[in-house]
Structure formats: C-alpha cells, structure tokens
C-alpha cells in the first residue's frame, strides 16, 4: 500500500465513526517574543465513545493542551498562534468567552489531577454539583438536587443522600474525585477530558476510579481524552494513543500498534518495549537526558539531543509525519524505523 492509499483508508475509517473533536495544527506560546512555540502543530481527533490517551513526560504540554481546549488558559499570557479545534461544527479556539462558558461543564467537561484542592471548601458537594446542573439546564433547586443525588449514585458514592450536604473536607481523596467525576458528567458532556485523574490517589483507589470512568463511559458513550503516566492504564482504557514530547505529538495511532509496533524512537524509549516481551505494565520508562528548555530547543527534531539515531538532518530540519498505517503517524525522519534505519546501516 502506498502513502495516499493509506491516507485514503484512514479517512474512510474516520468518516465511518463519529468524530467529536478534531484538533488541527494547534500551536500555542506563552510569550509574544518567543521564537519557539511551547506547543507546535498538534493535531489529533477523538471519536464518540472512544478514548484517546495522551502520554508523555511531565512538562511536555499535556495539561496546557487540555486547558486550551476548555478555554481555561488565561490569555495573556497564553496565546493560540495557529490551529483549529472543531467541536460540534464550531472552532473552540474562535469562540467568544461567553460561548466558551456555555460549552464548559455542558458539552465539554474536565476532571483534574488534584481532587484534594479542586472542590471549593466553602460549599457542600451537593451544592457544587447542583450549581453546574442549574447553570446549563432549566431546573429548579429541588430537581437539580434530585439529579445530583442520581449522579452521586452513578459514581457509586456510598450513602449518597447523606453526602449531598457534606463539605469536601469530610470526604477522602477518592470520594472527592468521584464527586469531581459526578460534577463533570452531570450534564452528559460529549467530551470528557481527564487530566491524570488518578495520579494523586492511592493505588487501590486508582484502580476503582479508573474502572468507574471506564464503566460510565461505556454507559454514556462519552468521548474521552485521558492524560496519564501509567502504561497499565493506557493498555486498559485507550483506543488511540498520542505520544507527546516537548509540545509535539511525536507519534499517534491505535493502542495495539503503539504498544506492539512503536515507530518513533521516543515512543520506543518511553514504552521501553521490545515487541517480543509483550505489553509493558507500570510507569513509563525514563529516558536518559532531559527536555531542553524552550530557548535551547533544536530547530530540527525536538527529540534529537536525546535520540540515539539523531544525525545532522535531524538537528537541522523538522521531520515529516508519514502515515504508517490507518490513523498511525510518527514524526521522525527514520519512520518506519525497521526499513529506514536498516537502510542506513
């Protein structure tokens, strides 16, 4: 199969399912003058009922990307330089503040990493959930309270009636994250963004929360972007995986291909997986070296200072992102690795 046929194939796959969000060439910086953009040319899409996992070392721009989609980045300093994020026929990046607020918590919702600090200590959890419901739906206080109770049941909080009037400090971290999930899902969003939702929790609680998110997603058909550090989570939850490095998506594709046939040197390093060993569980592997600061970012491939295969072209020129299969791309001069590196030696 040649390139264009592959691209054709991937388009057919796309159109046969329902794309909820499609991000194209998203580029963002935090200062007017910076020569290098913090996020550069990021493209991905999420389908109804499907989960896209975004993985990558901390600081690579995962949270910034999700906050930008939510319209929660203060601008200034954040500035979206290029790109579109099509969601329900509208470009999220081109909406007015009012339109963004109308979407937030309604069609797009987000769960954050820090359950201990993400709830307002001054209000009961019932009030905080009901508030979001009343904001977007015409409901009386009593109706919103009944709906809130349903949500607390849905996220399997024990004795939900008594929790309605509890303050956040009276709940454990796991319970608070359940409340956050209830709040996020209260208005049946089409897209749920979960930014490391279990990182701050105990391991046993992590598994419960993850199972819960998975179950609810199956029940509601919500599309999900899940940001995680945990390869076990990726293996369990993801349909697609996008690997981010220093503000770029270096490789993305169906979860099986990313695990079994990674094509970008960074993905290989991160997943530390030799295909014959099968899927690696646990945390992402660490790769020698560190992400260079933005001012020192090489003008070619951003991974070149740490890449074992880097050559002069890698350092000087930004690599293309060839299609390696339906929906599978890798931003590397040597992708697919076996063929091209084999040819080099």
């Amino acid at each position: 199969m040649n390139q264009s046929a592959l691209a054709e194939a991937s388009r057919t796959v796309e159109s046969s399912s329902e794309t909820v969000l499609s991000v194209e060439d998203f580029t963002l910086s935090f200062s007017e003058s910076a020569k290098t953009n913090l996020i550069e040319g990021v493209s991905f899409h999420v389908e109804r009922g499907k989960t896209l996992c975004i993985v990558g070392e901390s600081g690579c721009g995962k949270s910034v990307t999700s906050l930008a989609l939510m319209g929660l980045l203060a601008s200034p300093p954040a500035r979206i330089r290029r790109g579109t994020a099509m969601f329900g026929g509208k470009d999220l990046f081109a909406l007015s503040e009012r339109e963004k607020a109308d979407l937030r918590g309604n069609d797009i919702a987000m769960i954050f990493q820090e359950p201990m600090t993400s709830l307002n200590p001054a209000f009961t959890v019932g009030h905080q959930i009901a508030e979001g419901i009343m904001r977007h739906r015409h409901m009386s206080k009593a109706e919103a309270r009944a709906e809130t109770l349903k949500m607390l049941q849905m996220v399997r909080i024990p004795a939900p009636e008594s929790r309605l009037d509890a303050y956040p400090h009276q709940l454990s971290g796991g319970m608070r994250q359940r409340v956050m999930i209830a709040m996020a899902l209260a208005n049946r969003p089409k897209l749920l963004i979960a930014d490391e939702p279990t990182t701050a929790l105990d391991v046993t609680i992590q598994a419960q929360i993850l199972k819960l998110i998975r179950q609810i997603q199956e029940e509601t058909g919500t599309a999900m972007i899940l940001i995680t550090h945990d390869l076990g989570v990726v293996a369990e939850v993801a349909d697609h995986v996008a690997v981010m490095y220093a503000g770029h998506i270096v490789e993305q594709g169906p979860v099986d291909e990313i695990f079994n046939d990674p094509q970008h040197p960074y993905t290989i390093g991160l997943f530390g997986s030799i295909p014959t060993l099968g899927r690696r569980q646990g945390k992402l592997a660490t790769i020698k070296g560190a992400v260079p600061p933005l001012e020192l970012m090489p003008k070619g491939c951003r991974f070149s200072p740490r890449c074992p295969f880097a050559d002069q072209r890698c350092r000087d020129e930004v690599p293309p992102s060839p299609q390696l299969g339906p929906d599978h791309t890798a931003a590397c001069w040597y992708a697919p690795l076996e063929q091209k590196l084999g040819a080099r030696q």
């Binding site: 929660l72 954050f112 979001g132 904001r135």
Partner: peptide, 15 residues
C-alpha cells in the same frame, strides 16, 4: 489562583 476556582470556571459559571 486556586484549583477550585478553575473547577468553578470548568463548570461554565459566569465570571
């Protein structure tokens, strides 16, 4: 600048 204010905005509440 606290997290729960971000949560309040994420709910779509007006400024």
């Amino acid at each position: 600048s606290s997290d729960y204010i971000r949560t309040a905005k994420a709910k779509g509440l007006m400024p």
